[in-house]
Design a protein around this nucleic acid. Structure first.
Lengths: 213, 213
DNA sequence: ACAGAACCGTAACGTACGGTACGGAGTTTG
DNA sequence: CAAACTCCGTACCGTACGTTACGGTTCTGT
């Protein structure tokens, strides 16, 4: 399962350090895991010695970068003031849009790629960090909405986790794996909106409560 | 390496060469992309010179390995003799089972990881090969079934591609990305069967002809 | 049996890169 | 100004690994 890990949220970073990590992020998008400590130092206009002093080693730098990006992505939770079918639909669609935008962003793709590469040579836990701040964070954010929907009789399901995973599948489908493998399933703003609407409609068709007695 | 690799299906390989590629496959599962030419030569009991003579360079070896694995995975197409709801359901469930077994296998995970890593440092087209023999091959295999189902009035959809992708999402959900990132969503034989049945049921609920548009 | 090709094992070469050391410039403290 | 600290730029070191080279052994055809 997800190990709790040190819950350092990527804070206690100086502005200068954030700049460095942003440079790493940009390099990661451009060169993938192929970036070298020298290229980072050059791009960030800092010395390698400083990199090692701040982040320990290459893996530490990568880990800090993943954490830093994760701390930036935190989106506002979907809050439910009044719950009716239109507002629930809107929440789900907005959530799906957010999610599709995240997974199709250059940064997310690059980060997932490097985390997956490291998961192969299982040295550090980049994969766990990415998973914790991606897939699991999104679940934590959506589940209260699903359960609220069930409480007021708009949704019907037994297991929240299962329902979430179905929604996840309906939204993401083959998009993430294709992007990671270098395919480009043309995700425009409009296509994302369409996808979000379709996924929401289908999810409601599967888990929407029938007319109550 | 000089590309020129067109539609080489991984054939014209001698048995000895296949043995070598199988060794690469095993090493890929064990060490990920971290394998060295020396380790391959040692494991396969061949000389490095032979590796370079046969496969050109490291990327050529990896490409040949991906092609070789792809040529092994070819599963028999789902054939439809008579089409009624039970047989369609069975076809879809069987297909989903196959697919889940493939994506959760050590070999598939290792291969997807290395292909994704290479897609990042976009040097060769491993990602395209994996995609072509994975996701797209599965689509080619299932689409005739879906269209046959529509022809006899069991299914209702406009775009076959869209319907396929929804089924893909319902089956795979978050499983592949979690496996690639090193998470282990406990996929037993029984869990796979359950998942396949659930996905099929939900797909029929969405696209079964009895349903409203 | 013999020549030549194919192949194995190992050694050697060159380079890329992670990690370290050091001098110097800028800033803070006193 | 001086001492202490931080950090940049660069040179340096050791190692890992891709690639090549070569001597020795097995296989193949005549």
């Amino acid at each position: 399962m997800q190990q709790g890990g040190t819950t350092e949220t990527g804070e206690e970073l100086t502005p200068r350090q954030r700049d460095v990590l942003d440079a790493v992020l940009r390099l990661l998008v451009e060169e993938g895991d192929h970036l070298t400590m020298a290229s980072v130092a050059r791009r960030a206009s800092c010395s390698k010695e400083t990199l090692y002093k701040w982040f320990g080693d290459r893996d530490g730098l990568l880990t800090a970068t993943v954490r830093w990006q994760a701390s930036k992505v935190r989106v506002a939770p979907v809050d439910q003031t009044r719950l009716d079918l239109p507002s629930l639909t809107e929440s789900l669609e907005g959530y799906a849009c957010d999610w599709l935008k995240v997974i199709s962003s250059d940064t997310s793709i690059a980060l997932n790629r490097v985390a997956i590469g490291h998961a192969g040579s299982g040295k550090d836990n980049l994969g766990a960090i990415v998973l914790e701040n991606g897939r699991f964070a999104m679940a934590k954010r959506l589940k209260p909405v699903l359960e609220a929907g069930r409480r007021v009789g708009l949704l019907a399901f037994e297991d929240t986790e299962t329902a979430f995973r179905v929604f996840f599948g309906l939204v993401g489908r083959d998009i993430q794996i294709r992007l990671l493998l270098g395919d480009w399933p043309g995700l425009t703003e409009a296509a994302i909106a369409d996808d979000a609407a379709r996924a929401t409609k289908q999810f409601l068709a599967l888990y929407g409560a029938r007319k109550n007695p």
